[in-house]
């Protein structure tokens, strides 16, 4: 009955908020997920980024990326929560392909290695 699936969700929060308020806003989202039968796997705050185009007359956004497991029936509730939440400018929730997750991990590691190598090279210089 209660088959849960792996989802990923990205939300763009209002970057005009103070850091503490951003913290509270992300906590509200994560709490909402856990309160409605989901279990968080990963929460990744990408931080403030420039938007490719203005959304609600704002040029910057605070990106929060979450991976969670939840029953499918929870998603409409999350959707509604996002829409009603005034601090969220945009959101996107998708089912996460484990292959894609693996791929991102591998690439992030490769990138970290490369960055480390670069840093070492510049230190030697």
């Amino acid at each position: 009955m209660t088959d849960s699936r792996l989802y990923e969700s990205t939300a763009i929060l209002n970057a005009a908020l103070e850091d503490a308020d951003v913290e509270i806003a992300t906590k509200r989202i994560t709490d909402f997920i856990t309160d409605n039968g989901g279990t968080l796997v990963e929460v990744n705050k990408w931080g403030r980024r420039r938007l490719a185009y203005p959304i609600k007359k704002k040029f910057n956004g605070y990106y929060v990326y979450m991976v969670f497991e939840a029953p499918a029936s929870m998603l409409p509730l999350l959707e509604r929560f996002y829409v009603l939440d005034e601090n969220t400018l945009r959101h996107l929730t998708l089912q996460l392909d484990p292959k894609l997750r693996e791929f991102r991990k591998v690439r992030a590691e490769a990138q970290a290695l490369r960055a480390a190598a670069m840093a070492e090279a510049s230190n030697k210089m």
Binding site: I12, L51, A52, Y53, I55, G61, Y63, R90, L92, L94
Partner: peptide
């Protein structure tokens, strides 16, 4: 198209 929705890519570059 997903990336555009999340303002990672522009719809039209200004």
């Amino acid at each position: 198209k997903y990336a555009r929705h999340l303002a990672i890519l522009p719809f039209v570059a200004q």
